[in-house]
Design a protein around this nucleic acid. Structure first.
Length: 575
DNA sequence: GCCGTTTTCGGCCCGACTGTTTTCAGTCG
């Protein structure tokens, strides 16, 4: 089993945790955490690179020392420093560090004074009332720790973007009803369109003597008030979703929005640039000495550090600041750029809308064409189509196209990629279609090599147009299957086919970093809803968000093309 | 551990809230 980038990142994270408990230099700890993030997000496999004798590429924040450690971990899966730290500290202690309310100092104190090394021991110590006896701890702290341990034992979770969106919408509508509230904006990872969010960060501006915080406390969905002050509050909703609310003046709105939108890494980078220019950025504004020089809008904040506005989806410190400085920010794709949707199901298989209903809904969503792409015969549970039924559907589509105005249905299929890389329908059937999407729906546990080869072989079919949900993951439910995505992207480039960004909130597949890799390789993506009902076209916005996080522009998107262009693209594939 | 219009040492983003204190450390975002 080769060492994945995620494995290397996990080693670096564990080192950071253990160093933190040891009380090491906080900047050294940050260096390990930054490196873990860079490695985890990097598009190519470090172990493949070292195996091929390549040097570790130069990445910001990774110097000689870390590069050497990464090389070691990539080749051996081990790291001397981690082994050493594990000898000095109880290894399970890192899970204590991840409990809310416990930081390195307290974890260290609990360990040294009470020999607490595990969640279970911490639970016992809290129940026994031993924690309150420690200097610096008290009854309330002990109670919070007990609660945190029990919450962790019941496993806490992140919320899918679309789910968090429902809570966000209800809460913001409620807060807006406050007479004093002017603006109510959800910032944080929600605004950055991350696929999951851990909490909601809500920014509010309000007039003097506002009742916003009291109103928040009285919200019927609040299960617990975690902390509340005049300008800042945290509450837990009944769903388990935490909400942090921040109240600021209108004049600070832009800087507060920047601060609250993050990401943390992006903010730190921006503040460092400000510092070099003799400026200080906080949530209240941009300051030269004690004089505020900007802050009312986000644009004004970026301007003080010599940068243009950077879209929230890009704010991950993945090169967007350098790109902004060079005037090379992407002009990100927008929902309105989409002209069609190339992955749609109907009642013929496992969808819930008729062809006409789906066409009407797509048109209402502003689309000019959709491809009907049912499952193929192998997916019996979904009533997958065989060649004969597929041909009958083609006739239906022809007939319906004669009646429809302003929208065109394309004939397609979401054909299963069989274990050996063959497609689930004969070429003679595929040849009759406008667009063929290939998808893996079985044998998720093949080895990396076999899974990758399987997909590459499928792409070699002359009719293959788009690889559906390329990693197969279901957020929080199913891990991605093990494939070499860099190879798949290269192969897609050679073959001229496209990769899907599946917009279903549970899929969001390609991942953001893979979108960027595809773009850099010159491979088009297709942002598709995978609609199974007329309501599902609304999910396209999540796919667009994911693509924007991956620096995708309209010119990188297959279904941002007009129908005539698309037709030429598909014809060229088969030539 | 990284990094350099302050360049090989000495910095490294910034502030609110809580609880345990009696002026502040710890944690969080």
């Amino acid at each position: 089993m080769p060492v994945q980038n995620a494995d290397i990142a996990a080693v670096l994270e564990e080192i950071a945790d253990l160093l933190e408990i040891q009380g090491a230099n906080p900047f050294r700890i940050r260096a390990y955490r930054n490196a873990a993030r860079s490695v985890g997000e990097y598009g190519r496999s470090f172990s493949s690179m070292t195996e091929a004798g390549e040097e570790i590429p130069h990445l910001p924040g990774i110097g000689e020392d870390l590069a050497a450690k990464i090389r070691d971990i990539a080749t051996t899966g081990k790291c001397h420093l981690l082994d050493e730290l594990r000898r000095q500290l109880p290894p399970a202690i890192t899970e204590l560090l991840h409990l809310p309310g416990l930081g390195p100092k307290r974890v260290s104190a609990l360990w040294h004074a009470l020999d607490v090394q595990t969640l279970e021991q911490l639970h016992r110590a809290a129940l026994d009332g031993r924690i309150r006896e420690l200097p610096g701890f008290g009854e309330k702290t002990e109670a919070k720790i007990l609660q945190a341990v029990e919450a962790r034992m019941g496993t806490e979770r992140r919320f899918r973007l679309a789910v968090a969106g429902q809570y966000a919408e209800a809460l913001t509508a409620y807060l807006k009803k406050s007479a004093a509230a002017r603006r109510v904006e959800v910032a944080g990872s929600f605004r950055r369109m991350r696929e999951t969010v851990g909490d909601l960060d809500v920014l509010v501006t309000a007039g003097q003597g506002s009742d916003v915080m009291e109103r928040l406390r009285a919200y019927e969905d609040v299960a617990e008030v975690l902390s509340i002050g005049p300008t800042r509050a945290s509450v837990m909703l009944r769903s388990g979703l935490q909400v942090d609310v921040r109240l600021v003046d209108e004049a600070s709105y832009g800087s507060a929005l920047c601060y609250f939108t993050g990401s943390k890494a992006h903010n730190i980078h921006i503040r460092r640039i400000a510092q070099e220019r003799g400026l200080k950025i906080n949530e209240y504004g941009v300051f030269r000495d004690s004089r505020r020089i900007a802050g009312e809008t986000e644009e004004s904040v970026y301007r003080t550090v010599g940068l243009p506005f950077i879209a929230p989806e890009l704010r991950e410190d993945r090169g967007e600041i350098e790109a902004a400085r060079a005037g090379a920010l992407p002009k990100l794709v927008e929902l309105s750029d989409l002209k069609g949707d190339l992955h749609v199901h109907s009642v013929a298989t496992d969808g819930r809308g008729t062809l006409r209903e789906m066409a009407d809904a797509a048109q209402a969503a502003g689309l000019k064409y959709i491809a009907i792409t049912e499952h193929s015969r192998r997916l019996t549970m979904a009533k997958g189509l065989d060649a004969a039924r597929l041909l009958r559907q083609c006739d239906e589509i022809d007939e319906l196209n004669g009646e429809l105005k302003g929208i065109t249905l394309l004939k397609g299929i979401e054909v299963d990629i069989l274990d050996d890389g063959k497609l689930d329908l004969p070429d003679s059937a595929l040849a009759k279609l406008d667009v063929v999407i290939g998808a893996v729906h079985s044998a998720f546990d093949l080895s990396r090599t076999r899974q990758t080869e399987r997909i590459l072989r499928a792409m070699d079919n002359r009719y293959f147009g788009i690889l559906a949900h390329p990693t197969g993951r279901l957020i929080d439910r199913r891990a991605p299957y093990d494939v070499d995505m860099a190879r798949i992207i290269r192969h897609a480039k050679e073959r001229g086919c496209a990769l899907e960004v599946n917009a279903h909130p549970e899929r969001l597949d390609l991942l953001d970093t893979q979108c960027k890799a595809a773009k850099e390789a010159g491979v088009l993506v297709s942002i598709n809803s995978d609609a199974h009902s007329t309501l599902d076209f609304a999910n396209l916005r999540f796919g667009v968000g994911q693509a924007r996080r991956g620096w995708i522009e309209a010119k990188d998107v297959l279904n941002a093309q007009l129908l005539a262009q698309l037709t030429r693209f598909l014809a060229k594939l088969r030539a």
